[in-house]
Every structure is written in structure tokens, then in C-alpha cells.
């Protein structure tokens, strides 16, 4: 029996060499993903990226860093892609795919309500051209769903198709959600610092507050994504959910909330997003624990 097979067997049995092997895999994965995002991220996550081809390449390398790390680690440890969670499994998993659209939309609507309550930002259906313009704006936004799904494949291949499962083996379900969420949150450091995504560049205690809040957001959102991953036995469902959050939710927020009243209040709005993610994420976490 060769050493890889022996390690695999031991890993399945929970023996020490297998445990160390998994921990080394996780450490290597995190090191590669972080190195790529820290090397290419700060340059590419800027407002000039769209105008420079080289920065475009850097941006894609940074965005795909978890997927690249996953492929390298799986290849290096002879693991391959034997688990077929990369394939979409629509047949028999309709509920999971329905939830992959419904949950992010619910998250977006809750975020709108919270922003209205906290900031009094005006929960109005605003569109100069009436309903047709509103539909048109949403349709234009929905086209970007496909590009978002392509970019986010880079993240989902790393987080849901590798990290969370490996962590769950050793830290349990709750540990994997918390630790995975923190790793995922900290990975967002370059866009958080360079562009101030979600919380702005003028947040109190910037950038530490931003990173901490992002980690909380990622823990909650991670619970939702992991539930979908488990329900569908595929990474495509969380990928759809992630893309819906990044496109349709933004569209909902811009359609229902008064932008003038929101100006300069990005941090408070970000906090509302975190709260909304917790409202949706915690029940998903509980449901996932019950499923187990």
C-alpha cells in the first residue's frame, strides 16, 4: 500500500498522521490563498482596475486565489477531485436550488428594512420612469449575475469545495463555520482596505472594525452557503446564492432605498447588512446542526 493510500485510510479512521495531513493541507491552502490575494489584491482592488489590462489579470488572480489554492493542494496531496461536489445536481435537489435564490433575496429585503429602521433612509419604490424603468434597471443588473457567478466560482471552489469540509472533520460543524468564516472574512482584507467595500473607508476604528465586521458577516453568510452546499451536495447552489447576494441584493437596495439619505452612511449600512446576514444565517446554522 503506498503512503498516500495509507494516509487516506488513517485520515478516515481519525488517526494522527491523517489529522496532521489535513491540518497541513488547510495551512497550505490558507497560505496560498492569502499570498495570492495579498500580492495581487492591493493593486487590483482599486478604482483604476477597469482601465488597465494588467490590473484586470491581477484582479482575476486575486479573485480566483481560493480556487487556485484548492487545485494546488488537492494536486500536491494526490487528492484529485474525486468528490463530485463540483457538478451541479439539479435532479432531486430542487429545494436547495430554490433556497439558493430565495435566501439571498430574503437577506436583501431584511437589509432594506433594517436600513430603513436604523437610518430612516426611506423605503420607497423610487424610479423616475415608473415601474418599467425599475424592471429595466433590475434586468440590467441581473445580466451581471453571470459574470458575478464566474468570478465567485473562484471563491466557492476554495471555501465550500475544500476548506469548510476539511475544517468540519477536525473542528466539528460549529468550529468549521466559525473558523471558516474568519478565514474567509480576513481574506477580504485588500478590498476592505483599498476600496472600503461594505463598510466604507471612514468607519470608526478603520480598518480593524471593517475586518471584524466582515468576519461576522462571513460567519453568518458561510452558515447559509454551507447549508446550501450540504442540501444540494454541490458547490453550484452556494455559488448561485453568492452571486444573487452580490447582484440582485445590490439592485434591491438601490431600488428601494433613497440614495441621497444614505450618502456618507456606508458604515451604518454595512452594520445593517451584517445584522441581516445574522438574521438569515443563524437559522441556517441551526437547521444545519439539526440535519446532522
Amino acid at each position: 500500500m503506498d503512503s498516500v493510500k495509507q494516509h487516506k485510510l488513517m485520515s478516515e479512521e481519525g488517526n494522527t498522521p491523517g489529522k496532521y495531513r489535513d491540518l497541513i493541507q488547510i495551512a497550505l491552502f490558507v497560505a496560498i490563498a492569502y499570498t495570492l490575494i495579498l500580492v495581487f489584491g492591493p493593486q487590483s482592488y482599486s478604482f483604476e482596475t477597469g482601465a488597465d489590462m494588467k490590473l484586470q489579470v491581477f484582479y482575476h488572480l486575486a479573485a480566483f486565489s481560493p480556487a487556485i489554492a484548492c487545485v494546488i493542494v488537492r494536486y500536491a496531496f494526490g487528492e484529485g477531485f474525486k468528490d463530485d461536489i463540483l457538478f451541479p445536481k439539479f435532479i432531486g435537489h430542487g429545494k436547495a436550488y430554490l433556497l439558493s435564490v430565495a435566501l439571498p433575496v430574503i437577506f436583501g429585503l431584511i437589509a432594506c428594512v433594517l436600513v430603513t429602521i436604523v437610518l430612516g433612509a426611506g423605503f420607497t419604490f423610487k424610479s423616475e420612469g415608473g415601474v418599467f424603468d425599475a424592471v429595466l434597471n433590475n434586468m440590467l443588473m441581473s445580466v451581471s449575475f453571470y459574470y458575478a457567478a464566474f468570478i465567485l466560482l473562484g471563491e466557492e471552489l476554495g471555501w465550500r469545495a475544500f476548506l469548510y469540509d476539511k475544517l468540519e472533520k477536525h473542528c466539528g460543524l460549529h468550529g468549521s463555520v466559525v473558523i471558516g468564516g474568519i478565514i474567509w472574512g480576513v481574506w477580504h482584507l485588500p478590498p476592505l482596505v483599498c476600496m472600503g467595500i461594505n463598510f466604507g473607508l471612514e468607519a470608526p476604528g478603520f480598518p480593524v472594525t471593517n475586518v471584524v465586521l466582515m468576519c461576522i458577516f462571513c460567519i453568518s453568510a458561510g452558515a447559509m452557503m454551507q447549508l446550501l452546499r450540504k442540501m444540494s451536495d454541490s458547490v453550484i447552489a452556494p455559488l448561485i446564492a453568492h452571486a444573487v447576494i452580490d447582484t440582485v441584493c445590490n439592485s434591491l437596495i438601490s431600488m428601494f432605498l433613497n440614495e441621497e439619505l444614505l450618502e456618507g452612511k456606508q458604515f451604518a449600512m454595512g452594520c445593517c447588512l451584517v445584522a441581516a446576514s445574522m438574521i438569515v444565517g443563524i437559522p441556517c446554522w441551526i437547521a444545519m446542526a439539526k440535519r446532522k
Partner: peptide, 13 residues
């Protein structure tokens, strides 16, 4: 025209 734009956005779907 807005109708043309709407049709254009429908194409990917």
C-alpha cells in the same frame, strides 16, 4: 429604446 434594452437584457436569460 427602452424596449430594445429590455430585450437585450433578456437575451442571456
Amino acid at each position: 429604446s427602452r424596449i430594445a434594452l429590455l430585450i437585450f437584457t433578456l437575451i442571456p436569460h
